[in-house]
């Protein structure tokens, strides 16, 4: 049974994580940022490992674009 994408708050310290993401891009060019984000998505997608959850996340991320 496939899990579904969790939308409730799961991060104990959301501001810290947000800052980690922003900081990671601080010294990067636009191209490097794109490379970074691509790597991060792949690493996290593999960690999630659930095709259903990833498909839901892809759909949620694309909303309105």
């Amino acid at each position: 049974m496939s899990n579904s994408l969790k939308s409730e708050a799961r991060l104990a310290r959301p501001d810290d994580i947000y800052q980690v993401l922003i900081d990671a891009h601080r010294d990067l060019t636009a191209d490097q940022s794109q490379a970074f984000n691509s790597r991060l998505v792949l690493l996290l997608a593999n960690h999630v490992g659930d095709e259903g959850v990833i498909a839901e996340a892809v759909e949620a991320a694309g909303k309105g674009l």
């Binding site: 191209d31 794109q34 691509s38 790597r39 998505v41 792949l42 690493l43 593999n46």
Partner: peptide, 18 residues
């Protein structure tokens, strides 16, 4: 596309270690 290339290159870069 640029995004497709970025993902492709990301896969190749990550493949060294992962």
């Amino acid at each position: 596309s640029d995004a497709s290339r970025a993902f492709r290159d990301a896969v190749l870069d990550l493949a060294r270690e992962h």
